[in-house]
């Protein structure tokens, strides 16, 4: 049978995939995609714990995470469009304006 540990290990794997994306990608849009993966991994863990401990708090937190992710995308895409209009690129290396 599938237990809580199966879901938690799966969630850890998805989180690690998202982390690879955040650390490795240099394109801002790809960084956004990786963030979505990380948020989804957290949601899976919350839903699994909520099911196996028979407690609805986990699902509530997952709902609020989804709300936060939606507003993050709305604001973030607006900022990305502004950046692209200004610089013509979304590459982080080209966007670095403070040379230190």
């Amino acid at each position: 049978m599938i237990g809580l540990n199966h879901y938690l290990v799966l969630s850890g794997l998805l989180f690690a995939i998202g982390l690879v994306g955040v650390l490795r990608r240099k394109n801002l849009l790809m960084l956004f995609f990786a963030t979505e993966i990380i948020l989804n991994a957290a949601n899976v863990a919350f839903a699994a714990i909520s099911h196996y401990y028979n407690d609805l708090s986990g699902q509530m937190f997952a709902f609020f995470i989804i709300a936060v992710a939606a507003s993050e995308v709305a604001i973030g895409l607006g900022l990305l469009i502004l950046l692209y209009k200004k610089h013509g690129t979304l590459n982080l290396d080209d966007l670095a304006s403070m040379k230190g």
Partner: peptide, 21 residues
Amino acid sequence: ISGYFFMLGADFLGVVQLIVY
């Protein structure tokens, strides 16, 4: 991912995942 939510009995969360995400 919404498939996990349906398997876990969190039907409403699965539907919200499909609609919102």
